[in-house]
């Protein structure tokens, strides 16, 4: 479904992504993990058109989409959430999800100005769909609240509902469980599994919570310093000495450094 070949993204002298290749097959829950600064979020930004790659190809269903703007990629069925929340805080919870539904709505100006029957049907269907999604992520009771009145964990789920409203084929989740407690993390894990199994969406997530990754992901890609370090199943990754070195080695060195300094 998604194939990345020789992807490079430099910011000045910083090589955030430095020649990465991988393939995400249709269906399944996939994870991209790695230490801070490994280039995970940059990779998401490249795949969703937020950033333009310096070099390399991004093939979506065999078509090179590298460098296309986000709105064009959204039309192809790529949706995402953000690590640093990008919620529309000036709107209600329901309206946030309705913006996520944008591409499925009747958007003619005359229809909107004069509220034609076709426009009203489209809006009513969108509201039903959005309320159903909000119920699914546990935000039904909050739907008419301004988004800026929600706690952090709820905003994370709102972003997932907004991304799902587009009915994407590929869903990228950037740290969906960051800042969530154990119960919330479990709910998000269940939600991710359901989205894959029931909706048939291919999910790729970036996540630091290893328990979540090991529980829900079939396929893991490890990045370090902008390059792919390893790839495989949860078991393979857990036992890969390079991965252990990248995570534990660094931690051990930092610990030694801190202790020594």
């Amino acid at each position: 479904m998604l194939e990345v070949r020789g992807l490079v993204c430099h910011f000045g002298g910083v090589r955030a992504v430095d020649g990465v290749d991988f393939t995400i097959p249709e269906r399944g829950v996939h994870a991209i993990i790695g230490p801070n600064g490994a280039g995970k979020t940059t990779l998401f930004n490249l795949v969703t058109g937020v950033l333009r790659p310096t070099a390399g190809e991004i093939l979506f269903h065999g078509e090179n989409v590298a460098g296309r703007p986000p709105e064009a990629l959204a039309r192809l069925g790529i949706s995402r959430t953000f690590q640093n929340l990008r919620v529309f805080f000036n709107m209600t919870v329901l309206e946030n999800v309705l913006v996520g539904r944008h591409l499925h709505l009747y958007r003619g100006a005359l229809g909107a100005l004069f509220r034609t029957p076709r426009f009203r049907r489209s809006e009513a269907a969108a509201r039903d769909f959005a309320e159903h999604l909000l119920a699914r992520v546990g935000l039904a009771d909050w739907r008419h609240r301004p988004a800026d009145s929600l706690p952090y964990g709820a905003l994370k789920r709102l972003e997932i509902a907004r991304a799902l409203a587009a009915e994407p084929r590929l869903l990228l989740l950037d740290e969906p469980a960051a800042g969530c407690n154990e119960a919330e993390t479990r709910e998000i894990a269940e939600l991710i599994a359901a989205v894959e199994a029931e909706d048939g969406v291919t999910v790729v997530l970036v996540e630091h919570d290893m328990q979540l990754v090991m529980n829900v992901c079939d396929h893991i890609i490890v990045l370090d310093h902008g390059r792919k370090l390893a790839e495989g199943t949860a078991r393979e990754i857990r036992e890969d000495p390079r991965v252990i070195e990248a995570y534990l080695g660094r931690a051990a060195r930092e610990f030694a450094h801190a202790a020594g300094g």
Partner: peptide, 14 residues
């Protein structure tokens, strides 16, 4: 309004 709130998220929504 979404453009005002978070332009990049609006574009990701299409």
């Amino acid at each position: 309004r979404a453009v005002h709130g978070a332009e990049i998220a609006a574009r990701v929504c299409g």
